[in-house]
Design a protein around this nucleic acid. Structure first.
Length: 740
RNA sequence: GGCCGCUUAGCUCAGUUGGCUAGAGCGUUUCAUUCACAUUGAAGAGGUCGUAGGUUCAAUUCCUACAGCGGCCACCA
């Protein structure tokens, strides 16, 4: 054997041997044990966070050694919004934008882009030793997935769980799509708060430009100051509109003047007030973030202006008319911004597809409450429940091309009010309503160049996978990514496996996507199959740098796992992610730690070298006492037992620390030294090595396998049986685990 | 504002139902080392376990309050 463990030379070779032996495929015999790998983004390359998939690899390897028929199901996600965002950044560098393409070309371009950037991640996973059944890999835009998603949608539509509604969505003018509530960030900011006179009453607002969309002024019903004004009408400046003063509990009497202008089309709260008071919504900002004034507005010059500029313009006009009572320049509040691009979101009214979650979430809540699905660490149960409690209807349509298109078809002749954007034969972008466009253009031309359409809520549609006969255009919105990845258990497992592998055994994932993904999988799985998707949920936190800071490109502290693997070996990398970390805590990845763990792999290697050498050497002089061997074997037994217990509880931190301690400081420092003195037999030591190799294999698969081969032990280590711990013959008091 | 978590050695963190001199990795000090491994061994220094109370024979561990840090959620226009 070489003097040190040369991971560079051997890891690839070893992995190949495993694959050739077909060990990653589920065996035909044994109890099923199933883990679905959280699908990474198809265009992503490996980052440190993926390293935590190690816990799943550990479980799979361990269970396989215990004789289970293990399946680790891999896949990749198209990650609709994320990916299109990345692609558009790439387009921008070339001086282009998504508006230069018709929908179909855009989709194809993104697909090509993803294709060029994908495939890397599985290679990298293999470098880390991950043993998933790669041949079964599923991509969320595969036909199988699309079919499943479309069927689910149909079923939901039949069950009256799908509706279209004018909903106030958080719309990002820059990214060109609506965002779910989970995709918004809040940013604290200081802005001026303007006090504007609306006749006898003064309102306070940070967004004066939305005043053209005002339909009322609201005051608190308990507010004595305004009691006699309720029900009166005031004239809205710069319009011919007269709006009522209404009472609503939501108004805070302490804040501002205690009177709020109500703009249902551009504010979440106002939208709700508007619904309660049955007010109409007047939209004054379009989806490009430009002012579109209603007919009764009389202020010149701001039509088509961007929101920010319009605000200044409106203030100037108000000042001129002496309608500004005062301005509080230092008003600090928080604004909603796009989690992706960081720009202000514009609450906008657009027709959206929604899933009613009230009935869907009920069984999920029940399953969590009854511990049908268990969370590790436990605190996430509570978090899950509190999220489920406030979860409301789910807007599933995204105004992006990269995704599964909603299978609804609109007939143009009967839906004249559909807004259409398309690129005509000459390559010009054309906008208009269906009934007008049909007069000027051939249907085929519109269809070919189609970019997007917005159908009014009342529009009639047919749900169908294929195009109905006639002048039908398909909805251009795509499903939210989580709508497809939420059905991950159903789309990755074969139908006949539902009986044996659903629920799967454990879902291990980042806790941040508990609500995005875990909750949706539970919802879909219970709805479609009336089964929980997994028995256990194991959650980990982000991977941080050695100072405990989150890794991010902007902080410049991103570590490339592959570089560490090149330098120190996959085993060291894996072990360092698990060693000394508590369940659910953030994971510290530091080079120092990886180096230390590399030393540990080397220790394993060298212990084996010692034993190999001592095999050749002549027997030790002293008579070896049998009782020493006996105690040795008992402790070995106890090590096995404890390791197994830790794994059963998903205590990877404790398991690795324990094994490290026992192997290095007991087996090597004590036992090998005793062997040199002739106090422990070669045979016992050899048995000990075999046991430790097996126990360590799930964590450090490469070096243990390499040693197994070097020692010419039988077969592949990866296929060996997990040692059984016999319980008889000792009490734990006999064995002292502490180092000293 | 609400909820959750954290606060243990110089640094980063473990500590499994309260119980023997509180642990690891890195760093650090001294010594050893042709004998599996300097990617080593031995020994050591370093902690009033955030603060103040309480429960208990016993508290780093349980309870309460407070302080600091972090996360999530909800947000007053």
């Amino acid at each position: 054997m070489e003097k040190t463990w040369d991971h560079k030379k051997e890891e690839e070779e070893i992995y190949k041997r495993w694959e050739e032996a077909g060990v990653f495929k589920a065996s035909k015999t044994g109890e099923p044990y199933t883990i679905l790998m959280p699908p990474p983004n198809a265009n992503a390359s490996l980052h440190a966070g993926h390293g935590m998939y190690t816990v799943e690899d550990v479980l799979i390897r361990w269970k396989r050694m215990q004789g289970y028929s293990t399946l680790w199901q891999p896949g990749v996600d198209h990650a609709g919004f994320e990916t299109q965002f990345v692609y558009e950044k790439y387009l921008k560098k070339q001086g282009k934008s998504r508006f230069d393409f018709d929908r179909e070309s855009l989709y194809k371009n993104v697909a090509k882009f993803v294709d060029e950037n994908s495939g890397q991640i599985y290679k990298q996973f293999k470098r880390l030793g991950f043993g998933a059944d790669w041949k079964r890999s599923v991509f969320t835009l595969d036909k199988k997935v699309r079919d499943c998603v479309l069927n689910t949608f149909k079923k939901m539509a039949n069950d009256n769980l799908i509706y279209r509604s004018n909903y106030l969505v958080n719309y990002c003018n820059y990214c060109g799509t609506s965002l779910s509530e989970l995709e918004t960030d809040h940013k604290d900011r200081v802005d001026p708060l303007y006090f504007i006179k609306y006749g006898p009453i003064t309102v306070a607002t940070t967004r004066p430009e939305t005043m053209f969309g005002d339909v009322a002024v609201a005051v608190n019903p308990k507010d004595k100051r305004y009691k006699n004004l309720i029900g009166k009408l005031v004239k809205l400046p710069f319009t011919s509109r007269r709006i009522p003063i209404i009472a609503d509990e939501m108004v805070d009497m302490e804040f501002g003047t205690g009177a709020v202008k109500i703009t249902p089309a551009h504010d979440q709260n106002d939208f709700e007030v508007g619904k309660r008071a049955k007010l109409k919504e007047i939209s004054v900002i379009d989806l490009m973030g430009k002012m579109r004034l209603p007919d009764d507005a009389k202020l010149e010059g701001i039509e088509g202006m961007k929101v920010r500029m319009a605000r200044d313009e409106v203030i100037r006009a108000l000042v001129k008319e002496k309608l500004i009572e005062k301005i509080d320049e230092k008003y600090s509040h928080s604004v909603m911004v796009c989690y992706k691009c960081g720009r202000d979101l514009e609450p906008s009214i657009i027709p959206n597809w929604f899933v009613k979650v009230k009935t869907l979430k009920k069984p999920v809540i029940k399953a969590v409450n009854e511990d049908k699905v268990k969370f590790y660490p436990k605190r996430f149960k509570k978090q899950m429940l509190s999220w489920l409690a406030i979860m409301h209807d789910w807007p599933i349509s995204r105004q992006i091309a990269w995704g599964i298109r909603i299978p609804a078809w609109y007939k143009l002749e009967t839906n004249g009010q559909i807004k259409i954007s398309f690129i005509d034969k000459k390559g010009e972008r054309v906008n208009g309503l269906a009934n007008e466009l049909l007069k000027q253009y051939d249907f085929g031309e519109i269809e070919n160049g189609l970019q997007n359409l917005i159908a009014p809520n009342e529009a009639e549609y047919i749900i169908s996978e294929t195009k109905p006969k006639g002048n039908y255009l398909q909805e251009t919105d795509t499903f939210d990514t989580w709508f497809s990845s939420g059905q991950w258990p159903m789309v990755t497992l074969e139908k006949q496996e539902y009986k044996t592998r659903l629920p799967t055994d454990v879902m291990g994932t980042l806790h941040e996507i508990l609500r995005f993904w875990v909750s949706r999988m539970m919802m879909f799985s219970l709805y479609l199959e009336n089964k929980i998707p997994f028995k256990d949920v194991y959650l980990w936190s982000m991977v941080a740098d050695k100072k405990g800071k989150k890794m991010s490109k902007s902080s410049g502290n991103v570590v490339n796992p592959i570089e560490l693997v090149d330098k120190y070996g996959a085993d060291a990398f894996r072990f360092s992610l698990l060693y000394g970390t508590a369940q659910g805590s953030k994971i510290i990845l530091s080079e120092d730690k990886v180096r230390a763990m590399r030393n540990f792999s080397n220790k394993i290697w060298n212990a084996a070298r010692f034993i190999e050498n001592s095999k050749i050497q002549k027997p030790r002089k002293k008579q070896i006492s049998k009782s020493n061997d006996q105690v040795f074997k008992q402790r070995l037994n106890e090590v096995t037992k404890k390791t197994t217990e830790f794994l059963e509880k998903y205590e990877f931190g404790l398991a690795t620390e324990f094994l490290y301690q026992e192997f290095w400081h007991w087996y090597c420092d004590e036992c090998i030294e005793k062997n040199k003195k002739g106090e422990i037999s070669n045979e016992a030591l050899l048995e000990g090595l075999k046991t430790f190799l097996k126990l360590l294999h799930p964590f450090v698969p490469f070096v243990t396998e390499a040693v197994w081969q070097e020692m010419k032990f039988e077969g592949l280590l990866v296929q060996q049986r997990w040692p059984s711990s016999r319980k008889k013959n000792f009490t734990s008091e006999q064995i002292i685990f502490k180092k000293k």
